[in-house]
Amino acid sequence: GSMHMFSVEHKFYGGHGIVGAQVSLGTGLGFAHKYRDDGGLCLAYFGDGAANQGQVYESFNMAELWKLPIIYVIENNQYAMGTSVNRSSAEDQLYRRGESFRIPGIQVDGMDVLAVRGAAEEAREWVKAGKGPILLELKTYRYRGHSMSDPAKYRSREEVQSVRDKSDPIDHAGRELQAMGVSEDALKDLDKQIRAIVSEAADFAETAPEPALAELYTDVLVENY
């Protein structure tokens, strides 16, 4: 998954195997931007399940106290690993989670790409103005289980299909583009190009040679103390 993707070159510092730990790391990156005074900002992404972790609120406190340039993005898919946010969270309006730290929040339709873009631009302006952190709660949905071993029996097939029919973000973006004058043929061509890119990436991953066994020891500290 995304926790295994990492690129210093692209300033993408991956996720973390510990739930919510990337929030602390992201806050540290925000501190680095402020310390270096380089004009940068950090976006730290986490889900509705991680939103209940303690280190998240320690990070909120430090970020607001030091006015760090960071945008906390909560991707609320409503079920975390398999429990409804309404059953697991005393405050299920997650954009309010920063209020006790005086951090403002915005709730956004995460299935609408233009709404997300607009909210992101607003959040960026807030941070760039030196006002400190801000929260974005993106209300979204996942069609499949949390993992390959998740049969997703905590919701009905009818619920999933209803979201697909009414709120699918790709279909919604397609309708927006058509309203702007983009032809259906152009959209089909774009879909074909994207599928080719995905297929090429999958083929590369499956055919790439396995790393040498010696790589197991790369960057591993082994010393006597």
Score class of each variant (00 low, 15 high):
residue 6 F to Y: 15
residue 150 D to N: 00
residue 213 L to N: 07
residue 128 K to L: 12
residue 38 D to W: 12
residue 161 Q to A: 13
residue 205 A to M: 13
residue 157 R to I: 01
residue 27 T to A: 13
residue 202 A to G: 00
residue 113 V to Q: 01
residue 102 R to K: 15
residue 86 N to C: 00
residue 54 G to S: 08
residue 7 S to V: 03
residue 92 D to I: 00
residue 49 G to D: 01
residue 173 A to R: 05
residue 75 E to A: 08
residue 14 G to I: 06
residue 63 A to L: 07
residue 60 F to V: 08
residue 175 R to H: 09
residue 170 I to R: 09
residue 139 K to T: 01
residue 62 M to V: 14
residue 203 D to S: 08
residue 118 G to V: 04
residue 90 A to H: 01
residue 76 N to A: 07
residue 19 V to F: 04
residue 141 Y to H: 01
residue 59 S to R: 01
residue 101 F to W: 14
residue 219 D to R: 14
residue 187 L to S: 06
residue 66 W to M: 11
residue 105 G to R: 10
residue 196 A to E: 15
residue 211 P to G: 10
residue 46 F to T: 02
residue 150 D to E: 08
residue 66 W to H: 14
residue 60 F to R: 03
residue 48 D to I: 09
residue 106 I to T: 14
residue 159 E to A: 08
residue 127 V to F: 03
residue 86 N to D: 12
residue 55 Q to Y: 02
residue 192 K to F: 10
residue 126 W to K: 03
residue 40 G to D: 13
residue 50 A to C: 00
residue 127 V to S: 08
residue 130 G to Q: 04
residue 189 D to R: 13
residue 124 R to H: 02
residue 101 F to D: 11
residue 20 G to K: 10
residue 80 A to C: 05
residue 14 G to Q: 12
residue 28 G to E: 07
residue 136 L to N: 02
residue 28 G to H: 11
residue 124 R to Q: 11
residue 133 P to E: 08
residue 167 S to V: 00
residue 221 L to C: 01
residue 163 V to T: 01
residue 37 D to W: 00
residue 163 V to L: 06
residue 158 E to N: 06
residue 5 M to W: 06
residue 149 S to E: 10
residue 87 R to L: 13
residue 103 I to V: 08
residue 225 Y to M: 08
residue 137 E to G: 03
residue 167 S to W: 05
residue 161 Q to L: 12
residue 153 K to L: 12
residue 17 G to H: 14
residue 153 K to W: 02
residue 69 P to K: 10
residue 62 M to P: 01
residue 126 W to S: 00
residue 42 C to Q: 11
residue 172 H to F: 09
residue 218 T to C: 03
residue 156 S to Q: 11
residue 100 S to A: 15
residue 174 G to L: 02
residue 194 I to M: 15
residue 45 Y to R: 01
residue 109 D to R: 10
residue 177 L to Q: 07
residue 113 V to F: 14
residue 100 S to M: 12
residue 79 Y to L: 09
residue 16 H to A: 14
residue 77 N to G: 06
residue 208 A to F: 11
residue 128 K to M: 13
residue 176 E to K: 09
residue 17 G to S: 03
residue 12 F to H: 13
residue 165 D to L: 05
residue 53 Q to G: 09
residue 115 A to M: 09
residue 175 R to T: 06
residue 136 L to R: 02
residue 130 G to N: 04
residue 170 I to N: 06
